[in-house]
Amino acid sequence: MTHTYKITGMTCEGCRSGVEAKLNAVPDVAHAEVDLNNGEAQITMHKHIATQTLQQALPSKYKILETGNHAQPKSNVFETSTAETSQSKIQQLKPLFLIFAFLIAAAILLHKDTWDWQAMMLDFMGLFYIVFSFFKLLDLKGFPDSFSMYDPLAKAIPAYGWVYPFIELALGLCFLMRFQIAVALILTLVILGITTIGVTRTLLDKKAITCACLGTALKLPMTEATFIENALMIIMALVMLFI
């Protein structure tokens, strides 16, 4: 019998091969094949193996969930699993929400006396790039692989994934120092526009992959929050350019 499973937490080829090796080592597994792009595993087994048993064979950062007609036969069990997955996703996104809250608060406090909304937006965008580039630079070696899973340009030109954190850092400094703002805004539209295309495709294809917006240090799932994050920056750039 062959079952299909969704697996989250994989960010690179090393993750894929590690997960595949762990699953193939489970007793009664005849063959396990893991697809990194789709976040899926096809497991052929001699007899049925509980999903919990497969989960125990994997490191805690990976989550495995059976899909299709073979998944949980009782509706109440399935609903419980869905609720737990949603709760887990919200918990995983907590760092992203906190970072945005701090960035917004910082931009407002810097201009609380003048309430200059243009200056607030520039400082928010500058701090956004600085903070997000910091997390990417924490694991510069692992970031390009994770980023190329959904960014079209990084997938076509691997070197782009290596320089991307430095591009973000440079843009952040431009906004904070008010240097070549028009150029920085145009570059924001270009690079985030390309990334948003990849994010949109990933969400529409319902691929279970890790978002690289905060590098690989924080294992954030790819969700609508990533799209909103990019869309917000694109809208702000358009506003600054044309209003």
Score class of each variant (00 low, 15 high):
Leu218Gln: 10
Ala217Glu: 08
Lys207Ile: 07
Leu96Ile: 14
Leu176Gly: 05
Ser88Asn: 15
Lys219Val: 14
Thr223Ser: 01
Ala225Asp: 09
Phe227His: 07
Thr196Asn: 12
Thr8Ser: 12
Thr216Asn: 02
Gln118Val: 03
Lys136Thr: 10
Met120Gln: 11
Leu54Gln: 01
Lys155Gly: 03
Phe134Asp: 10
Leu23Val: 00
Leu96Arg: 09
Val29Ile: 11
Ala71Met: 12
Thr195Val: 15
Ile99Leu: 08
Thr223Leu: 01
Ser146Thr: 03
Arg16Val: 00
Leu220Met: 02
Gly14Ala: 11
Thr114His: 15
Leu122Pro: 03
Val239Asp: 09
Glu229Gln: 15
Phe175Val: 02
Phe143Asp: 00
Asn230Phe: 14
Ala41Asp: 04
Val77Glu: 10
Trp117Phe: 12
Met121Phe: 07
Gly172Gln: 05
Leu173Met: 00
Gly172Asn: 03
Ala71Tyr: 06
Thr44Ser: 11
Gly39Ala: 05
Asp205Lys: 15
Trp115Gln: 13
Thr11Phe: 08
Ile43Gln: 02
Val26Gly: 00
Cys174His: 00
Met45Gly: 08
Asp205Val: 07
Thr67Ile: 14
Trp117Gln: 05
Gly198Ile: 00
Val29Tyr: 02
Asp35Ile: 06
Thr200Ala: 14
Ile64Arg: 01
Ser88Tyr: 12
Thr196Glu: 14
Ala50Thr: 04
Met222Thr: 15
Ala159His: 03
Gln72Pro: 06
Asn69Phe: 10
Ile157Phe: 07
Lys219Arg: 13
Gly172Ser: 03
His48Trp: 05
Ala156Val: 02
Gly215Pro: 05
Leu220Phe: 07
Leu153Gln: 05
Ile64Ala: 02
Lys155Pro: 01
Ala217Thr: 13
Phe124His: 04
Leu189Met: 15
Tyr160Trp: 04
Gly172Met: 03
Gln72Trp: 13
Gly161Asn: 00
Ala106Phe: 14
Leu122Phe: 09
Glu168Ser: 04
Thr80Pro: 06
Ile99Phe: 01
Gly68Met: 13
Leu189Asp: 06
Thr11Leu: 07
Tyr160Met: 01
Pro152Thr: 02
Met240Trp: 10
Ile197Cys: 11
Thr82Ala: 11
Asp123Thr: 09
Thr82Leu: 14
Asp123Val: 05
Gln180His: 07
Thr51His: 07
Lys141Leu: 07
Gln92His: 12
Ala170Gln: 10
Thr53Tyr: 08
Pro95Thr: 13
Leu103Gln: 14
Met45Glu: 12
Val19Tyr: 10
Leu109Trp: 12
Leu169Gly: 11
Gly215Glu: 03
Ala119Thr: 09
Tyr5Cys: 03
Gln91Arg: 14
Thr8Gly: 13
Phe124Leu: 13
Leu93Ile: 09
Lys61Leu: 08
